[in-house]
Each structure stands twice: as structure tokens, then as C-alpha cells.
């Protein structure tokens, strides 16, 4: 035995905002119609059996998914400095890098340059030679770093042109998303590159500074003992 009202009534019964009088109407019908009330019971049963779903645990996976630059030294000041710069345009962060480099390690003055390591700066011949060597080493490293960044920016521009040309032919949100993710990826790579370069530079400078300082201490010790 079937009922012509079943689908219409039961579909309404599952609505979110069933008005009280509508619910009364439906329940009045259900009380008199075995088919409809049986059908509703079965549907409710089906729905509640779905709700028996047991949450399954997520298998182990890499949540960072390479979206973040690798952090070898998570506590390092440099790492935090750069991770904080992720959303700053590459050019700006590069300029900051340059300023930082020049301020931290080398202070250029009227008579060439000097390295600032507190009051311990000495003017010995040995030191001058060491400093000159450091200067040329640092300049070439800096130039290599700049060249690497410029290379990437150039190829970025070429690819940007290509992307824009494709874009004019087919503008879809997917294209935009691809382009966007591409540039984001490039920027992260740039930053990673610069960070590695910067860290190498800083580490080598600290090494040099430490040995220069030892040298200076030695020289002053020699001087006072004489």
C-alpha cells in the first residue's frame, strides 16, 4: 500500500526550519498513514546509522608540505628574521639584507673600511692585510649572491611574460591560482637562497672576526710584553 503524499511530506519533515503548524500537519498524517510513518522510521534509521561513523585517525604526514622554508636552526635569530620576512617583496628584503650585511660586518669610511668588533680594533700591519683579504673575499661573495638573485629575478620576468600571454587567452581562476602559487614559490626560494648565502657570510665573518680578535689580542700582548 502506498501513499501519494509520502515524498512531499517527508522531504518537508527533514527541513531545518519546519514551522510548528507544518510539523503538526505532518504528524497528524503520520498517525493515520502506516506507509508514511514506516518510511519515515526507515529514513531516520538510515540517517542515524550514518552517524555511527567512527572518526579515523589521520596517518602520519608532513604538515608543512614544503610550504615553509626549511628551518635547520629554528631558534637562530637569522632564521626568525627571514621567516618573518616571507611576505615582504623580494626587492625590499634584499635591500634589507644588504643594509644588514654592511652594518653588521663592514663599516666603510674615508680610509677604505674597517671591521667593527668593539674597542678591540687595532692598526697593525697584519691586521690591515687580514682586513684587505676579508674585504675582497666578502665583496666576491656578495657579488655572487647578488648575481644569483638577479638571475632568478630575470627568469621570473620572462616567465611572468609567458604567463601573462597565456592569461590573456584563457582567464580562469585556476590560472590565477597557478600563477600566484608559482610566484609565491619563487619568492620562498629567493629568500631561502639569500638566507643560506647570508648565513654562510655571517658565519665566515664571525670566524674571521674571532681569529682577528685573537690576533689583535696576541699583538697587544706582544706589544705590552716587549
Amino acid at each position: 500500500m502506498s501513499c501519494p503524499k509520502t515524498d512531499h511530506l517527508l522531504q518537508e519533515y527533514f527541513a531545518d526550519d519546519l514551522a510548528p503548524f507544518a510539523r503538526e500537519e505532518i504528524e497528524k498524517h503520520l498517525a493515520t498513514c502506516a506507509h508514511c510513518s514506516e518510511e519515515l522510521g526507515a529514513l531516520m534509521q538510515t540517517q542515524s546509522s550514518l552517524r555511527q561513523w567512527q572518526e579515523q585517525r589521520v596517518p602520519h604526514w608532513d604538515r608543512r608540505m614544503n610550504l615553509f622554508p626549511a628551518e635547520g636552526k629554528p631558534q637562530s635569530v637569522i632564521a626568525r628574521f627571514f621567516s618573518g620576512l616571507q611576505w615582504v617583496p623580494t626587492a625590499a628584503s634584499f635591500a634589507m639584507l644588504a643594509i644588514l650585511l654592511l652594518n653588521v660586518s663592514v663599516v666603510s669610511g674615508d680610509q677604505g673600511f674597517s671591521i667593527a668588533f668593539g674597542a678591540a680594533a687595532k692598526n697593525s700591519l697584519n691586521l690591515q692585510a687580514e682586513l684587505a683579504a676579508l674585504q675582497s673575499q666578502q665583496q666576491s661573495e656578495m657579488q655572487a649572491l647578488i648575481a644569483r638573485v638577479e638571475d632568478r629575478l630575470d627568469s621570473n620576468n620572462v616567465r611572468l611574460l609567458q604567463a601573462v600571454m597565456e592569461q590573456t587567452q584563457q582567464t580562469t581562476s585556476e590560472n590565477f591560482e597557478q600563477m600566484y602559487s608559482y610566484f609565491e614559490q619563487q619568492r620562498l626560494l629567493d629568500l631561502q637562497d639569500m638566507r643560506v648565502g647570508y648565513e654562510q657570510l655571517v658565519n665566515s665573518d664571525y670566524e674571521t672576526i674571532r681569529s682577528l680578535q685573537q690576533l689583535a689580542n696576541f699583538v697587544s700582548y706582544e706589544g705590552s710584553s716587549r
Binding site: 608543512r64 615553509f68 628551518e71 621567516s83 618573518g84 616571507q86 611576505w87
Partner: peptide, 14 residues
């Protein structure tokens, strides 16, 4: 996470 904190991102994902 927007500021580049991978730690915060992982926490959000978890």
C-alpha cells in the same frame, strides 16, 4: 602562520 611561523601553521592544521 601568515607571518611565516611553521609552528603556528602545524598547530592550525592539527
Amino acid at each position: 602562520a601568515l607571518n611565516g611561523s611553521a609552528f603556528a601553521w602545524e598547530k592550525l592544521v592539527k
